[in-house]
Amino acid sequence: MNWLAQQLDNLAWMAHGGAVYVFAAMAIVCALAVVFTHNVVRMAFWLILCLAATAGLFFSLNADFVGAAQLLIYVGGTLVLLIFGVMLTASGPFLQMRTKPGEMVLGGVVGLALLGLLLSSALAVRWGERSPVLASEVVGAGFNPVAEGNTTRELGLKFLGASSRDLKTGRGELSAGYLLPFEIVSVHLLVVLIGAAYLARTKRRKQPADSSGDSRSAALSA
């Protein structure tokens, strides 16, 4: 019985840490699949899985609100939009536009070089030493909404320029907050809405040649 409990305990630890690695592996594999797939709809499918795995990573980082926003806006909104676009622009049933192998190789080499550069510079820094104020202090004991992923109120306060830590300690010099950027983004969204509607509105399609236009008008009159 004791042995079983011990095994279960180990398994729990592994499951807890392992979920993060599963999400990380899934994100990486799906991102690579997006690159190497030629069919656009399959690319969209892999992208869904990749973004969902990234949302899982957000949840593992106690960023519940951002994770849910990622699922709602990216996967539920943007990707549906993309697939809509695929359907409206596809000329064949399962559209494929092959990249030339040379381009692919060149892209791959440049990509690998960039990856090497990024990784070598990012992993060379000892983040723990550079920034000694790590999670233990940021998410202090007893008053700890972020540690459990309950970031909603914290985010709301942040938009107003406060933080619960300021309120708690009374060192409350309220900063400017993110209200102005928020307003700018909302106006930006409105502009985008109008702009997209203007750009995408139905226009007369440019006829490749006169003959097709004639046949079309003939078909209409018939």
């Binding site: 609100f65 849910a68 926003a69 699922l71 996967v75 909104g77 990707l79 359907m87 909603t152």
Partner: peptide, 26 residues
């Protein structure tokens, strides 16, 4: 029990349409 329960719910329910669209397309 999530702090953002309702938001999570709406987000998850918006994923369902993805499967339907892919089913229709494929």
């Amino acid at each position: 029990n999530l702090d953002i329960g309702l938001f999570f719910m709406l987000a998850i329910m918006s994923l369902e349409v993805m499967g339907v669209i892919l089913a229709g397309y494929s």
